[in-house]
């Protein structure tokens, strides 16, 4: 334990948290002790954890602001659904189909990430925020007009309406414009969701602690100094942004395949901001904070159902309180003194 570097230890703690989370809920659910309200939220929690981690890579590690991460999520969601539905007959094993769908979603989201990042990341300043904001809206409107159907001849695309897909009589419409994807087979499982979280965590932590990760952080801290050291700014920024987009796409595919329907409207500006809230409240650049914040803030509105009409008001107050407490020096000192006492006791025991 002592030989391990500080960053490696921190990484292992993160894996540990996720695995403990998984084991506890798996045991609870097999013992029948888990409420259906909570068991229904396990996969969304994992999805939002992945989203928060992905966004933290852009916002915290590479220091750019993305306001359209829900856009990447929707690209992943819809391409994942198309992949899963069109392979329904040829690939019968659901876990394999889910894996293919997630990979398809990640790849397509990565491609859109390249398209967005290539021109924008060359610029200095807040342009990425503006462009991703627009991207989120554009992708929503494109998906609202997109119709995709599948029959024995393969996939059919249309931007007009469902009737102009020219499908054979037995074909199914996979994506039906604003009605979104309907009749999706639910193949996401809690196990696969946790595995995705672990993979994403593995990729991000290894990226951050690698040579490339140090370069990305150097560019964030001082662009001119980094440039003068001969770092290729564009390359490293693209690396962080595209990896983040791919992860958001994977999360989208996982999310969509957990519900029987998914609509483009879901992935709007509000969802992007929600994920940004997870990142900001968890601590910008703090991966563990993102995991915990995403999990708690996803469950919180459900816990507050007993407040009925005042639910969202209480939710907002909780958010404000968290912001105040985490930024207040006295509160910090108080928490520090408590944890300090625990550490001392632990030290005495050892």
């Amino acid at each position: 334990m002592k030989k391990m570097s500080k960053s490696a230890r921190s990484s292992f703690i993160n894996y540990g948290i996720v695995i403990v989370f998984f084991v506890i809920f798996q045991v609870l659910s097999s013992a029948g002790k888990l409420s259906s309200s909570l068991s229904g939220q396990l996969i969304p929690i994992c999805t939002y954890v992945v989203m928060a981690l992905a966004l933290n890579l852009v916002v915290g590690i590479s220091g750019e602001l993305s306001l359209g991460h829900a856009g990447f999520m929707s690209v992943g969601a819809f391409s994942g659904v198309v992949a899963a539905v069109s392979l329904q007959n040829s690939v019968t094993a659901a876990p394999l189909r889910l894996m293919i769908a997630i990979i398809t979603g990640a790849l397509l989201a990565a491609v859109t990430g390249v398209i967005i990042g290539f021109p924008v990341l060359r610029l200095q300043g807040d342009y990425l925020a503006i462009v991703t904001l627009a991207f989120g809206e554009i992708i929503k409107n494109i998906l609202n007009c997109l119709y995709i159907g599948a029959d024995s001849n393969g996939l059919h695309f249309s931007m007009k309406d469902g009737n102009s897909l020219n499908m054979e009589p037995g074909g199914t419409v996979i994506i039906n414009g604003p009605m979104g994807a309907l009749g999706i087979q639910k193949i996401s499982t809690f196990l696969s969701a946790v595995i995705l979280v672990l993979i994403v965590l593995f990729i991000i932590q290894n990226l951050v602690n690698s040579r490339a990760g140090r370069a990305i952080k150097a560019i964030r801290d001082n662009r001119i100094a980094a440039e003068s050291c001969g770092l290729n700014i564009m390359k490293y920024k693209m690396m962080a942004f595209v990896v983040s987009a791919a992860m958001a796409g994977a999360a989208g595919a996982l999310y969509a395949l957990n519900y029987s329907t998914v609509v483009p409207k879901k992935f709007d500006f509000n969802t992007s901001i929600l994920i940004l809230v997870f990142v900001v409240l968890g601590g910008i650049g703090n991966l563990r904070g993102s995991i915990i914040a995403a999990a708690i803030l996803t469950v919180l509105p459900e816990l507050l159902r007993q407040f009925q009409d005042y639910r969202m008001l209480v939710y907002a107050i909780v958010l404000i309180l968290v912001m105040i407490i985490t930024n207040n020096s006295k509160a910090k000192a108080f928490i520090g003194s408590i944890t300090g006492r625990f550490t001392k006791k632990a030290a005495v025991k050892e």
Binding site: K33, L38, I292, V299, E302, T339, F342
Partner: peptide, 19 residues
Amino acid sequence: KLLAVLLSAAMICSLTACG
């Protein structure tokens, strides 16, 4: 590490409290 354990414990408590 301790803080992390504490936080995860708090998280789990808050989650199970829901039921």
